[in-house]
């Protein structure tokens, strides 16, 4: 097995495979569409993006994003990051073809056990961003931390930690 025996894949093939898998993961979920959440990808790093919309407002007098929207945005970012970390190895070692990812062939989504949101400042009527970090990913349980910000990366407006029940990975 000489390392030179395999040429690197063309970059477009790699990107197409990863984007197709991410697309299948995100766009299959009606609630993610309802909130309008999208994901930016740089290699394996995901950033969840919540474009501002009037229907996301809670208190119209401030106005501020609804606290529930903030919680939901963080939870979506956590679940997608965790699922993404589960499909990434199979996608990259070639045991599953990225183009073949569709909502039916994806592994089951992790289930939330608990989710704790820390509201640091009110959500402004602007776009919001979130990045999740899987701190522990076991066979049965995972712990994920998420940070969300708006104009300034270092001024978080909310953060959260959640525990998740992992999907059955025996198949």
């Amino acid at each position: 097995m000489s390392p030179k025996s395999r040429r690197p894949e063309p970059v477009q093939v790699v990107k197409q495979r990863r984007d197709a898998a991410l697309n299948a993961l995100v766009h299959g979920v009606p609630y993610v569409r309802f909130l309008g959440i999208g994901f930016d990808r740089r290699g394996d790093e995901l950033t969840a993006v919540l474009p501002f919309d009037e229907k996301l407002i809670g208190n119209p007098m401030l106005p501020a994003l609804h606290g529930g929207v903030t919680a939901a945005f963080l939870e979506v970012a956590a679940i997608i990051e965790l699922s993404w970390s589960l499909i990434w190895p199979n996608m990259e070692n070639g045991s599953q073809d990225g183009a073949a990812f569709d909502p039916d062939s994806l592994p089951s989504l992790p289930k939330t056990i608990d989710f704790t949101v820390d509201y640091l400042r009110s959500g402004l009527p602007r776009d919001a961003y979130a990045r999740a970090r899987v701190n522990r990913s076991g066979r049965r349980y995972a712990s994920v931390h998420v940070e969300a910000w708006q104009d300034n990366r270092t001024r978080l407006f909310a953060q959260a930690t959640g525990h998740f029940l992992m999907p059955d990975q025996t198949s």
């Binding site: 609804h66 529930g68 919680a71 679940i79």
Partner: peptide, 27 residues
Amino acid sequence: SEDLIGDPATGVIHGGAVSTLMDTCSG
């Protein structure tokens, strides 16, 4: 509402929607 579905395989609503209900009701 079908818009609230979080797991298309089972049709179960997303935890985030339940969070919003709990947050609003608590407020």
